[in-house]
């Protein structure tokens, strides 16, 4: 049975695309056939984060509008063969997507893949609405920052009212993914703690991704951290989140570098 997972946040720039790519890789590496879809029509980026920008010929809009077949638009990852990408259009606008068209594409994908991960655009408008519309589960990406938490709360409300599942009275499973977390600042009291965010949003936690330079390096390379730096802190956090998504119960820990004196001295070379 395929699972449609939407990665959403309301607020922009919190790490949706980064998380979609990193989790897509992690799920695919675990042997699950996975497709990641970029719903950010007009501002596509998932192709870039996955290093597939030069391989996009047809995109989601082409398929929705019947200008290309799904098989022509799916881009198979060269490194992880169970991972595919359906890119967004760079030239069209978000009105190019229709609800019926997206429904058809998702239905077709459900037959081919175990996981269909939808990277939502920011905002609460049409694009974000379509990205969540057909989801079975949702990943709410939140930064430890007031405006992000507020927007996430709004998104939770929309997930519970505007999705097909919600309208049918079915359960919409939601997971909180806290990203760009800095444990040291949280400890000092200058950043909300994961517990604070959890208490406010009241949806189960699926992972805490630390703020890390590795993420920028990975996007420079076009290879998500889970692929390019699998032993780095953010990668380990994503890998564990992917396992929880698949139903494993592993305690969520806030990843920190446990630096011994040796580790500190040789940390750079060892890392």
């Amino acid at each position: 049975m395929a699972t449609v997972l939407v990665v959403t946040s309301g607020k922009g720039g919190v790490g949706k695309t980064t998380s979609t790519a990193a989790l897509g890789v992690a799920l695919a590496q675990a042997g699950q056939s996975t497709v990641v879809i970029d719903f950010d029509v007009g501002l596509r980026n998932l192709d870039l984060v996955l290093g597939a920008e030069r391989r996009v010929v047809f995109d989601l809009v082409n398929v929705v509008q019947g200008e290309a077949k799904l098989a022509q638009a799916l881009i198979r990852d060269k490194r992880v063969e169970t991972l595919s990408l359906l890119a967004a259009s760079q030239t069209r606008d978000k009105d190019a997507l229709t609800e019926d068209g997206v429904a058809r594409v998702i239905d077709e994908l459900r037959e081919k893949f175990d996981w269909i991960v939808c990277d939502s655009p920011a905002g609460i408008e049409k694009g974000a609405g379509l990205a969540m519309r057909f989801a079975d589960r949702a990943l709410v990406v939140t930064n430890p920052e007031v405006s992000s938490v507020r927007d996430s709360d709004r998104i939770v409300g929309l997930l519970d009212s505007k999705t097909l599942r919600a309208e049918r009275g079915e359960k919409m499973e939601k997971h909180l993914l806290v990203t760009r977390y800095d444990p040291a600042r949280a400890e000092r009291g200058d950043m909300m703690k994961v517990e604070d965010i959890l208490e406010i949003l009241a949806i189960p936690l699926i992972g805490v991704i630390p703020d890390s330079e590795e993420v920028l390096k990975a996007s420079n390379l076009g290879a998500p951290v889970t692929l390019s730096a699998p032993s780095s802190l953010p990668a380990r956090a994503y890998l564990e989140a992917a396992r929880r998504l698949r139903g494993e119960t592993i305690d969520v820990t806030v990843p920190t570098e446990k630096k011994s004196l040796i580790g500190r001295l040789f940390g750079r070379r060892v890392a």
Binding site: R150, R154, D190, I200
Partner: peptide, 24 residues
């Protein structure tokens, strides 16, 4: 004074209001 508790409290008050007006 740590700023995080302030953030938390402001959010709790704001969201209680917004959840009501957003039709939860």
């Amino acid at each position: 004074k740590p700023s995080a508790p302030v953030a938390r409290e402001r959010l709790q008050i704001l969201l209680a209001h917004e959840r009501a007006t957003n039709g939860r």
